[in-house]
Amino acid sequence: MFEARLVQGALLKKVMEAIKELLNEASFDCAHSGILLQAMDNSHVSLVSLNLRREGFDKYRCDRNLVMGMNLSSMSKILKCASNDDIITMKAQDNADTVTFVFESPKQEKISDYEMKLTNLDQDHLGIPETEYSCVIKLPSAEFARICRDLSQFGESIVISCTKEGVKFSAAGDIGTANIKLAQTATVDKEEDAVMVDMQEPVTLTFACKYLNMFTKATPLSPQVCLSMSPDVPLVVEYKIEDIGHIRYYLAPRIGD
């Protein structure tokens, strides 16, 4: 028996918005410790890693490890039926071929359930190597989304260049060039407004706008985003999901541009 009840059901709706453009389908690995999802995007240039810890759920029960292959377009249709203030429960029997989503309104006057067929996914096993990053940049997630959107008008790629002074985002194309520099903030009223750079050595890498823009669909999940870069390894774009976990996107740098 698997059952996970999330009082802040809106978080699950936001998670779905953050992954559904990148992935058509994915396996949710449910274990005693929580729910894990790892999958390459449809074109195998980026990887999504989602971690929801059991402690973040109001109620969590997982008697046996369970792999639930879900069609994300179907799951998204179902989650659209939940209101933002609904409590969402996911449940499945051991070895079941369906998963049930139950939506409870806050005052319990409306309870809906939706059963969805699971799919058998033949997914490759992925390993995420432990990496020390040369640069770790924290910035407001809305600012990062804005930068990706603005620079996408200039070209297909964004160059991210990190030095101890700050971080520079650049793009170039037919209409011209664009540079956005963010300095480390000295003092801020709110921590979520801060730009922080932790740099061991300067790094400059180029990434596809298309994917960075898809990652920014996670912006509603967190006020801050963390970018980790090292030469010759994928960029990590991480959004914390309150006290429950995180979503990380890994993106290959452009090679041979």
């Binding site: 074109s43 240039v45 390894v233 890994y250 290959a252 740098p253 090679i255």
Partner: peptide, 14 residues
């Protein structure tokens, strides 16, 4: 593409 190959090597052979 080279990027696909890069990701395959990085994540499939940790």
């Amino acid at each position: 593409s080279k990027e696909q190959q890069f990701m395959k090597v990085y994540f499939y052979n940790p």
